[in-house]
């Protein structure tokens, strides 16, 4: 951990000016007591410079980070300090505000990431001017993370495509989509055990006995999101945020969501079933190449999010 002096407090600067003046006065008037006072001030100066540096060298800092975060939302780095001086600490990457530290500490250090991406290391800054508060020293600690910190984009609220606008049924943790994807295939005779609502009354009237609708199997509708991050950085961030908003909305509506992105190692196609995973996938996404267009599960509705929106028909997918 490298310790450096960061600056003088304002009273310290004034003190230096006064001391310079007094030294001049001392030399001209030849006052012995003034030399005593100036020696004491020199002692204060040495202590004020040396002790913060020594105190920081003594300190032991441990930092651990969560595995994911979102742009603009505070995340907490776990900070553990042993033998730390009285001072302040803040997260540097991702950035956060100063928090006070009184001695040993084991607590969360709040940071608000401001950029999407994957961080393999975080850094924390510890600053002190103990005990006199005249000269500030700071030390920056950088920690390599065992699990990289994936910071997802700030989701922009997005509307689902009309074909997938689904209602909700009941309350609880997940909304269950009404099975709007079911198609009526035909009618058949009522068999004991069939649900009453399946009765097709018109057919029954025509046939004279109970007839029920014959349905396609229920399918959970799925949405595929092609994320195209090519182009200038601001556009790419906007795209990522839109994709995040759309994916979250879809997840909330109970759809199966597949993200098609490009990561550093290549194209990635995969389902996401929790908001955390949406953030992670989009954190890792980069704009190096065109996003892949498959493979997608059967019956998947595809949306492309990116700088331009041509609508190619991907293999295995279908258009509304």
């Amino acid at each position: 951990m490298s310790v450096r002096l960061t600056g003088l407090s304002r009273p310290a600067v004034a003190l230096l000016a006064v001391v310079a003046g007094l030294y001049g006065v001392g030399r001209t008037t030849g006052s012995g007591w003034l030399m005593v006072i100036l020696s004491a001030v020199a002692g204060v100066g040495v202590v004020a410079v040396a002790l913060p540096v020594l105190a920081l060298r003594r300190a032991q800092v441990e930092v651990s980070a969560p595995q994911d975060g979102t742009v603009g939302r505070p995340l907490e780095l776990q900070l553990r300090l042993h033998r730390a001086p009285i001072g302040k600490a803040r997260a540097v990457a991702p950035a956060g505000e100063w928090f006070r530290v009184l001695g040993a500490v084991d607590g969360p250090l709040r940071a608000v990431p401001d950029a999407r991406g994957v961080l393999s290391r975080v850094s924390v800054e510890l600053s002190t001017a103990t005990p006199l508060g005249l000269v500030w020293a700071a030390a920056r600690v950088t920690v390599e993370l065992e699990h990289p910190l994936e910071i997802g984009p700030q989701p922009l609220d997005a509307a689902l495509p009309p074909a997938l606008q689904l209602g909700t049924d009941g309350d609880g943790d997940r909304r269950r989509p009404v099975l709007a994807g079911d198609l009526v295939r035909g009618v058949r005779v009522y068999a004991p055990g069939d649900a009453r609502k399946l009765v097709d009354w018109r057919a029954t009237a025509r046939a004279g006995e109970l007839m029920v609708k014959d349905l396609e199997g229920p399918t959970t509708p799925s949405l595929g999101i092609l994320v195209d991050l090519r182009g200038p950085a601001t556009t790419a961030e906007q795209t990522a945020s839109e994709a995040a908003g759309l994916a979250l909305r879809a997840l909330g509506a109970g759809l199966l969501v597949t993200l098609l992105t490009v990561e550093r190692e290549g194209a990635v196609v995969g389902t996401v079933d929790r908001p955390v995973e949406v953030g992670r996938r989009l954190a890792r996404a980069v704009g190096g190449a065109a996003p892949p267009d498959g493979p997608l599960p059967a019956g998947c509705y595809v949306v492309r999010v990116g700088p331009s929106r041509p609508d190619p028909v991907p293999a295995g997918g279908r258009q509304p």
């Binding site: 009285i86 302040k88 006070r100 530290v101 009184l102 500490v105 607590g107 005990p131």
Partner: peptide, 25 residues
């Protein structure tokens, strides 16, 4: 000087620990 420094540090927000209590003695 010592008290002024403490006061200056005291103005900053504290770290809050696992149980919602101040993580400092």
């Amino acid at each position: 000087l010592v008290l002024a420094y403490r006061s200056e540090i005291g103005d900053l927000p504290p770290l809050v620990d696992v149980h919602g209590r101040l993580a400092e003695q």
